[in-house]
């Protein structure tokens, strides 16, 4: 039993523990998982003085309502999130990208993400959770990770092994930029699609479907016609790959994706744009812009420099 813990009054829609994810397991069918929006994950940990690869609470759309028992602790929330901190009778509206100190009996109520999908709650210290393959990341479809691979539920406790608290609050001015254009690299089956289909892919607008989750993002829009074969022999996938099944609607593989698949791949999202892609809520408009591999590698270097720069300012 831990002396410091959060009790979950309301779990939220899809609340899980996440970290950097797990590697070297694709060959047995286990994806990376890990925090969907990597930059916001890192910033949250930095704001509470944690190691950057510490376990964190990720939520989608609606977050958890938590009540704290224990000694003073710091927390920070990142993303585009509306939340309330309750200290006794006082309720204050919290700000993202700012650390707060709370104490015994205080509550954090994460109302919702605003025009985005994922938010992150970092708790100063160390969560008392079991790792699986060196990662806590919960994959609810495969029941892998901490909490028996299940999302967090009402009444359960989030225990802390260690807490750290600091009266000096930390903050940063990060703005989640929204982009409509997602940059993609041509896929290995690009030539399976008709000239018209290729044009549609790069020129038309798609809409993010409600049927999107940590496994994949489904898109709706004009159909992309396949003129070769709508099935290929199953082969490996990576996150960001865009498959087009027989119905002509693209599906983008996200962090909990199936490791092999048999639909033709029209493209793959540039790594530099992945964080922004996953934050596109159902109904968002999305357009693809073609870039080549060396552009994608340069963009990633810039993305990485910017991330390191942001972290060093905290």
């Amino acid at each position: 039993m831990s002396d410091n813990y959060f009790e979950i009054i309301r779990p939220g829609i899809n609340t899980t523990f996440q970290d950097k994810g797990r590697d070297h397991l694709y060959h047995i069918g286990i994806p990376f998982s890990g925090a969907m929006d990597n930059r916001n994950y890192l910033i949250a940990n930095k704001l509470v003085n944690n190691n950057l690869d510490s376990a964190i609470i990720e939520f989608a759309y609606q977050g958890p309502h938590l009540k704290y028992t224990g000694g003073k602790i710091n927390f920070a929330i990142t993303g585009d999130v509306i939340f309330i901190i309750k200290k006794g009778e006082t309720e204050i509206e919290g700000k993202c990208y700012e650390s707060y100190q709370i104490e015994n009996g205080n509550e954090i109520n994460i109302i919702s993400t605003s025009k985005s999908v994922y938010g992150y709650l970092a708790l100063g210290g160390e969560l008392d959770i079991k790792l699986q393959w060196n990662s806590c990341s919960i994959n609810t479809k495969a029941n892998i990770g901490s909490n028996d691979g299940k999302k967090l539920d009402t009444g359960q406790r989030v225990n802390l092994k260690k807490i750290n608290s600091n009266k000096d609050i930390k903050k940063t001015n990060y703005i989640n930029t929204k982009i409509e254009n997602i940059r993609v690299i041509k896929g290995t089956n690009f030539d399976y699609f008709s000239e018209e289909g290729k044009k549609i892919f790069y020129e038309k607008e798609f809409k993010v479907s409600k049927l999107s989750d940590r496994m994949g993002m489904r898109l709706e829009g004009p159909k992309i016609e396949n003129i070769v074969n709508t099935n290929i022999k199953s082969e490996g996938l990576i996150k960001g790959v865009i498959q087009v099944p027989a119905d002509g609607n693209p599906i983008i593989m996200l962090s909990d994706h199936g490791t092999v698949g048999g639909y033709p791949k029209i493209g793959a999202v540039a790594s530099a744009d992945y964080d922004r892609l996953v934050q596109m809520a159902p109904g968002s408009k999305i357009k693809f812009k073609e870039i080549n591999l060396s552009d994608a590698e340069t963009l990633f270097k810039l993305y990485e420099m910017e991330t390191q720069n942001l972290l060093s300012q905290i």
């Binding site: 590697d23 694709y26 060959h27 199953s234 490996g236 490791t259 092999v260 591999l293 990633f300 990485e304």
Partner: peptide, 22 residues
């Protein structure tokens, strides 16, 4: 290299773009 995915007739080799490149 952080992952390998063998299948019927393909092998996907994934790598960490922070450490290396294509």
């Amino acid at each position: 290299i952080n992952n390998l995915t063998p299948s019927y007739n393909k092998l996907i080799i994934s790598y960490d773009l922070k450490q290396t490149n294509f």
